[in-house]
Lab assay of single mutants.
Amino acid sequence: KRPMNAFMVWAQAARRKLADQYPHLHNAELSKTLGKLWRLLSESEKRPFVEEAERLRVQHKKDHPDYK
């Protein structure tokens, strides 16, 4: 399984919050909304998630050196 990218790291927590706020939204609508919200974030707001995704990528490479 591939490591999560920055969006997926962020969306993991954001999806729970959004689903709690809008329990009537279908998963497809949640995903579209999350995409729009992510694009509205500034680079500095995204930075911690980009850094975490990079950490996960490096760890994955270490754990699975033959993964392509």
Rank of each mutant, 00 (worst) to 15 (best):
W10H: 01
H26W: 06
L34I: 08
N27H: 12
R2G: 02
R57C: 08
D20R: 08
E43F: 15
K1S: 04
W38F: 06
W10A: 03
Y67N: 12
W10Y: 10
K17Q: 09
H60L: 07
F7G: 00
M4I: 06
A13Y: 01
M4N: 05
E45K: 14
L34F: 12
P48C: 02
R16G: 06
P48W: 02
R16W: 01
Q59W: 06
F7C: 02
A13Q: 15
L25H: 02
P23G: 15
A19M: 08
K62F: 03
R39E: 07
Y67R: 12
L34Y: 00
A53S: 10
P48Y: 02
A14R: 09
K46N: 02
H64I: 10
Q59C: 07
K17G: 02
V50E: 09
V58T: 11
K68A: 01
K62P: 11
R47S: 07
H60T: 10
A28V: 11
W38I: 00
A28D: 02
R2M: 01
D66F: 05
W10V: 00
N5C: 06
R16A: 10
E51N: 02
Y22V: 14
E54M: 05
K62Y: 09
W10K: 05
D63Q: 08
F49I: 07
Q12F: 01
R15E: 01
R55L: 10
P23I: 08
R2I: 00
V58G: 10
K1V: 01
E43P: 14
V9K: 14
V9A: 15
K46C: 03
L18R: 00
A28N: 11
W38A: 03
V9N: 13
E51L: 02
P3I: 04
E51P: 07
K62G: 12
G35A: 07
D66M: 06
T33M: 13
D66P: 11
A19T: 08
E51A: 08
N27A: 14
Y22E: 03
E45D: 15
W10G: 00
P3T: 11
M8Q: 13
K62Q: 08
P23N: 14
R47C: 02
S44I: 05
E51I: 01
G35W: 04
S31V: 06
G35K: 14
N5V: 02
L30K: 03
A28Q: 08
P23Q: 15
L37C: 11
H26K: 12
V9L: 13
R39P: 01
P23R: 15
A53P: 10
P65Y: 09
M4T: 10
G35R: 10
Q21W: 13
R47I: 07
M8C: 14
S44C: 04
R55S: 13
S31I: 03
V58C: 08
P23D: 15
A13T: 14
L37M: 15
T33Q: 12
H64D: 11
L18P: 03
A14G: 04
D63R: 02
L30R: 02
A11T: 06
Q12W: 00
A19Q: 12
V50N: 09
S42W: 07
L41V: 09
R39K: 13
G35V: 05
R57H: 10
E54T: 08
K46D: 04
L41M: 15
K61N: 12
L25F: 05
P3Y: 09
D63H: 13
D66N: 09
Q12K: 12
N27S: 12
E29H: 11
T33D: 01
D63M: 09
Y67L: 12
H60W: 07
A28H: 12
F7Y: 05
R39S: 09
L34V: 09
H24K: 15
S42Y: 05
E43N: 14
V9M: 05
L18F: 08
Q59H: 05
A13S: 15
N27K: 14
E43G: 14
E54G: 06
K61W: 07
K62M: 13
F7V: 14
K1L: 02
A19S: 07
G35T: 14
A19K: 13
Y67Q: 14
E54A: 06
R39L: 02
M8E: 15
K36Y: 01
P3E: 03
K36V: 02
K62T: 10
A11Q: 01
R15A: 04
G35M: 04
A19C: 06
H24Y: 04
Q21R: 13
P48E: 06
D63A: 06
K1E: 10
H64Y: 06
P23H: 15
D63F: 04
E51T: 02
S42N: 05
L40R: 14
P3N: 04
K1R: 06
K62E: 08
K1N: 10
A53L: 04
E29P: 14
